[in-house]
Design a protein around this nucleic acid. Structure first.
Lengths: 102, 102
DNA sequence: GGCTGGTATCAGCGCCGGGTGATGTGACAG
DNA sequence: CTGTCACATCACCCGGCGCTGATACCAGCC
């Protein structure tokens, strides 16, 4: 299983605010106003981060009148979890492989 | 299940070179010289990244004469995989939760 | 129509972090 | 003891990214 973890996806999730957004969206679908209340961040800042999450395919948008709802895509997160699980499994299997000193 | 993903750990893994190091170490235990050959990066650069990985608890060092072997810690990666899996599961469970427009 | 509220985009700033060169340290070989 | 090799640490530069204020856009309400 040659699963290399997707660097771009991790970099998207490596920001504290973005990870907080993802954690919040894992519980319920929210719109920007809710996220402003929950995180305390400015609207512009959140919109920028949501843009990054959207372009990375982590979240989906669902317009509802003047509001825009953001929903997390579980499969993307699950895929990432699987990649890390594979990596851990691979490391466990090859635990005693050691290349000789040159 | 209040599993919030560890931001610091993700930020450590969010660098392409560090992720490459982790991927290589998942296959076999290597020393710095091997990593220089495999990645093509400078020794100083690698040493800096290995320092970060070591301080984050992602890798272990095993001195062997003049050489220093680096070994990946599978449980750390597995724990991260579990956190993401929980997050994905939580998102699937609460897929239809939607907070009302304010 | 004009107005208001919810979001997105743009331009700019500041700063953290990755890359590099020089240097230090410690271990083997001779 | 001296030289060499493996590795770590330090100081520095510089580009990218997160944050912000201003502004544009769009949908509903009057």
């Amino acid at each position: 299983m040659m699963t290399s973890v997707d660097t771009d996806l991790i970099r998207v999730l490596a920001d504290p605010l973005r990870l907080q957004i993802v954690t919040l969206l894992a519980r319920e679908t929210l719109c920007t106003t809710h996220l402003v209340e929950e995180t305390g961040a400015r609207q512009t800042n959140l919109s920028n981060h949501l843009r990054v999450l959207r372009e990375a395919g982590v979240v989906e948008t669902e317009p509802c009148g003047r509001f825009t709802y953001y929903k997390l895509r579980p499969d993307v997160i699950a895929q990432l979890a699987g990649q890390f699980a594979d990596l851990a499994e691979q490391a466990r299997t090859a635990a005693d492989n050691k290349r000789a000193c040159p």
